[in-house]
Structures are given as C-alpha cells and as structure tokens.
Simulated assay, not measured.
Amino acid sequence: MMACVEKMASSHSHATFFLSFSIFLWFSLHIVHVSATEPTVPWYENLPAVAMDYKVHIDPGKEDCYFQYVNPGATFYVSFQVVRGGDGMAGFAVRNPKGDIVHPYQWKPNSEYQEQSSVGGYYSVCIDNQFSRFAGKLVNIYLTVVRYDMWEQYTKDVEELNMNMENFTTTIMGVERNINEMRQYQHHTRGREAWDMSLLTANNTYVVRWSLIQIVVIAITTIVQVYFLRKLFETKTGTGFSKSRI
C-alpha cells in the first residue's frame, strides 16, 4: 500500500513539473514572438521636444532631402538659411507624410515653415540648388518638434494623485513655449552672424586680391615707362650708339 502511494506521489510530481515547464516554455515563446513583431522606435521619437541644428553643403545642380519624424498632434517647425555660396539663395520645400508639398519651392536666401498640429509621420525637408550650376551652397537647417500634449498627460497623472498642480503645469508649458521661441531667435541670430562673417571674409579677399593686381600693374607700367623714356635719349654716332644722359 505504501509503495502504491509513493508511486502515485512520484507520478503526480512528474506531471506537475511537466505542466510547469510547458507553461514556462509557452510564455517564453510568446514573449519572443511579441518582441520580434513589435517595431523598434528610435528613442528620440518619444521625447516631448526635439531640436536639431545642421549645417550642410549642397553641391551645384543638386537637391538634398532630409526626413524628420513628427508625432501626431505635435508642433513642427523648420527653417533654412543660406550661409554662403553663389548668389546666396536656394530652393526650399517641405512635404508632409502623405507626400503633399505644404511649403512650395521658392528661390530665397532664407525661409521657414511651421505646423501647429501635425498629422504624424515623416516630413521631408528638401534643399534645391539646381538653378546654380557652378556654385555650391552652405545651408543652415533648424528643426524642432514639440509635443505640448504630453504636458496635458502630465497634468492628468498629477490629478490622479490628488494633487492640484494645474498652475504649475501651465507655467511649465509657458516656459517651454518661451524657450522654443528663444531657440528659434538664437538660430536666426547665429545664421545672420555666419552670413555677415562670410560676407566680411569675401570682401576682404576681394580687396586684397585687387590691391595686389593693381600693385603689379603699376609696377609693370612704371618699368615700361622708364624703358621707353630711356630709349628717347639714345643717339646714333657712326656705326655705334652713344647714350646721352640728362
């Protein structure tokens, strides 16, 4: 009787172990399947605000496009400014995630585009230098993506904790907007400073080059004048020449 009971207990223990191992294996396979099917999202796409500042070189006769992910409902702002090169102008266009041109091409030294509530997706920012066949352009691009709706989510989370932080959250939202405007102003100021520096450098090179050319021309002119002036006072005597000096 005891042997029968021990045999039944051993069988029950083996069955329990097999069931536990099966459940563990099922969960492991399920987790691996979910991890493999879920798309990987870049870390910066979930941030409340993203600001990017680029300086890019556009070759003559070329067009370069850059893509930026914008969360649904976020505020998207982009501006460009030609720092130096050629006539100081380039084409600038913005396409939404559907491929529609929301900011058409215009040949300008600088331009900007802002969308208060985005539909979400990857926006295309294109810089066109096809009208310039010989001169490359150095272009400054500034991008910002701000998700003001995340502050509202923070407010809801605080209210769930029975804390009255509405005024504090409103103040933070105002500060965030002011900081974003200050960054935009700083971007324009830096771009203008770079443009002025490029203009001063070009003017200095122009003045130095033409000054050297004029010095060389004056020196050559002086040498030629002295040579022909000496030739005027040369006299022929017999078979040879005699030179009289004044």
Rank of each mutant, 00 (worst) to 15 (best):
K98E: 13
M89I: 08
G85F: 00
M89W: 00
S28A: 09
Y66E: 03
W26I: 15
K62G: 00
G91R: 00
F92D: 05
D100Y: 03
H33N: 09
P48Q: 03
Y54C: 01
Y66K: 05
Y66N: 02
G86V: 08
D100Q: 10
F17R: 15
Q106K: 13
V50T: 12
S11E: 13
K62T: 15
I58M: 04
G88L: 03
S35N: 12
Y105N: 14
H57R: 11
E38P: 00
L25G: 12
F27H: 09
S13V: 13
F67M: 07
K62N: 10
G61P: 05
G91S: 00
N71E: 14
Y44P: 02
K98M: 07
T37K: 14
A15I: 15
S28I: 08
Y69Q: 05
G85S: 04
P104G: 03
V56A: 01
L29C: 09
S22E: 09
S13R: 14
Y44M: 06
F67D: 11
M89N: 08
D100W: 01
F18L: 12
F17E: 14
L25F: 11
K55F: 07
Q106G: 12
I31K: 06
D64C: 09
V32G: 07
K55L: 11
V83K: 02
A93D: 06
P42H: 10
Q106R: 13
G73M: 04
V34F: 06
H103R: 14
I23G: 02
D87R: 06
F17T: 15
P60V: 09
F67Y: 11
A90D: 00
K55M: 07
V34W: 03
G85A: 02
L19M: 11
M8A: 13
A51R: 14
F18N: 10
Y54R: 06
I101E: 12
M89F: 01
R84K: 13
W26K: 08
F27V: 15
A15H: 10
I23C: 08
V83Q: 08
S35W: 08
Y54Q: 07
V94D: 02
P97V: 09
P109T: 06
S22T: 13
N96K: 03
K55W: 03
S35C: 12
I58F: 00
A74M: 03
S13T: 15
Q106F: 06
F27I: 15
D64K: 10
I101W: 03
N110C: 09
F92A: 05
A15L: 13
N46C: 04
P39L: 08
H12S: 13
M89T: 13
D53T: 12
T37E: 04
L47Q: 12
F24G: 09
S13E: 11
S22Y: 04
